[in-house]
């Protein structure tokens, strides 16, 4: 059963459509990653779901209750972590946690036991007296997550919680999300990192306010049509210009390498021949599996 349901949601700002008839459903005990470029409408979608902004049409329900009518009953079920750090920098780790516990009416022994658990989870224990403003980026995000979890919400909405956070902290952050999933929470997380997207149970690709594709990471990878070859050469401007001259393929920079998209009807041998014609005869080239990012790029460019 879906805990959170978004149905044909529309949100416009001054004639600009941020969310364009978007629908999705999230089940309990699942992590759903929402991926898309900046301006795809992720933040608007999340804010509408949290009742922070009005929307033009459609609906969002949490536990079967519409945010339009039952926000008061929904709020205790929801945890939200906005994109920018929004705790009190002049208050300590403990004081921030205690404050949000107070707002949710969590006090006494219940608070004490949850606090211990969250500290253990997040590794914040040694920093309880430190002011939030003096924490490292990763610690800040883990504190913000702890504050959003103090009332044990059944739906957790996280807007790019790991952006700009070091890899180790990102790993720890996802460990926490995994244990929340085991506890039966529904987690919706926006992230720009495809390695994180691959960890989710379901993935929603979002672009220009619309849903581009949805499925498990494996399902989405299979959506890729054609093949990808990796050319282990530094993508210098000259090389890219030469490669772009080859007919029927599409080279693009991918990290320190070049990826070449090859349409489904072209064989590997044909590509090798064409590469050789352009002077890349002895270049190291291998066929690779399409990653989620490749899928996303293909879907976005409509190839």
């Amino acid at each position: 059963m879906s805990v959170l349901e978004v149905t044909r949601l529309f949100k416009r700002y001054h004639g600009l459509t941020a969310v364009d008839g978007f629908s999705m459903a999230v089940e309990a005990g699942r992590i759903v990653a929402v991926a898309g470029p900046d301006g795809a409408g992720k933040t608007s979608l999340f804010r509408a779901a949290c009742g922070l902004i009005d929307f033009d049409s459609g609906d969002v329900t949490v536990g079967g209750i519409s945010v339009k009518t039952g926000m008061g009953r929904i709020k205790p079920l929801m945890g939200y972590m906005p994109q920018s750090f929004s705790l009190y920098p002049d208050l300590s780790v403990e004081e921030n946690l205690r404050f949000y516990a107070g707002l949710f009416g969590v006090s006494g022994d219940v608070f004490a036991s949850r606090r211990e658990r969250l500290y253990r989870f997040s590794g914040l224990e040694p920093f309880v007296k430190r002011r939030a403003g003096n924490l490292s980026g990763g610690m800040k995000q883990k504190l913000a997550l702890s504050c959003a979890l103090i009332h044990q919400p059944s739906v957790l909405i996280l807007d790019e919680p790991t952006t700009g956070v070091d890899p180790l902290s990102r790993q720890q952050f996802w460990d926490i999300l995994m244990s929340l999933r085991r506890d039966g929470a529904a987690v919706i997380v926006a992230t720009p990192y495809m390695d994180e997207v691959a960890l989710a149970d379901r993935v929603v690709f979002m672009h220009a306010g619309k849903k581009l594709a949805e499925g498990t990471p494996d399902e989405l990878r299979r959506l890729y049509s054609g093949g990808i070859y990796r050319l282990a050469l530094e993508p210098t401007a000259e090389r890219m210009a030469l490669l772009s001259g080859i007919e029927g393929v599409a080279p693009y920079r991918f990290g320190a390498d070049v990826h070449i998209y090859v349409p489904p009807d072209m064989s590997g041998g044909e590509l090798a021949a064409r590469l050789a014609d352009s002077g890349f005869g002895d270049a190291p080239v291998e066929r690779i599996e399409a990653g989620l990012e490749d899928v996303f790029i293909q879907l976005m460019s409509g190839q």
């Binding site: 922070l52 008061g72 205790p76 929801m78 939200y80 906005p82 929004s86 949000y100 707002l103």
Partner: peptide, 13 residues
Amino acid sequence: EMGTLEQVMVTPI
């Protein structure tokens, strides 16, 4: 300014 108002507004206050 700090964004904390939004964080407070998602609580049942």
